[in-house]
């Protein structure tokens, strides 16, 4: 298969069919073809996590996944976390804790933190640090980001 390859991917709950070039990454297709620019392009070597998305239930660096590899799969980007224009509890916690400075890494941080909270309801500080080890913040808001994730977990537990 060369040239453009037809693929089907469910993106943020919506089934989509489109064509991609074999050498285009999931990151490029999300941003350039689907205009989902919440997912950021940064290091392109899997170090920084700014391009983190959830693919078939697990987070990945979308810069290291070819778009064709997602064929038949389900992708959730940061745009898929808010519902009906309302921020998720986790997104709200990031604002409340002042975890956002320049904001560039935040979509990746939030997708990774959302994944952590799906796996571990009440993570320890150590578990939060490990869960977000693949997401760098050059503003160094790590303290606030960790606090936001812990606050979201506590709020979620309180709501149950």
């Amino acid at each position: 298969m060369s040239g453009r390859i037809p693929i089907q991917v469910t993106v943020n709950g919506r089934a989509r069919a489109f064509e991609v070039a074999a050498h285009h990454t999931l990151l490029e297709v999300l941003r350039d073809d689907l205009q989902l620019t919440g997912t950021k392009e940064c290091c392109l070597v899997g170090e920084c996590g700014a391009c983190t998305v959830r693919l078939d239930g697990r987070i990945v660096d979308s810069c290291l996944v070819l778009a064709v590899e997602a064929d038949g799969g389900e992708v959730t980007t940061v745009e898929g976390l808010a519902s009906d224009g309302r921020l998720s509890r986790l997104q709200g916690a990031f604002l409340d804790e002042g975890a956002v400075q320049c904001g560039f890494c935040i979509p990746g941080q939030i997708v990774a933190a959302d994944d952590l909270l799906r796996r571990v309801a009440r993570p320890t500080v150590g578990e939060i640090q490990e869960g977000l080890a693949g997401n760098l913040c050059r503003c160094a808001c790590y303290g606030q980001i960790t606090a936001a994730v812990a606050a979201a977990a506590a709020a979620e537990a309180g709501a149950r």
Binding site: G46, T52, I59, D61, L64, D115, L116, E130, G131, G134
Partner: peptide, 8 residues
């Protein structure tokens, strides 16, 4: 690596 890397 990280969670993201280990998932792939």
């Amino acid at each position: 690596g990280s969670v993201q890397i280990r998932n792939r």
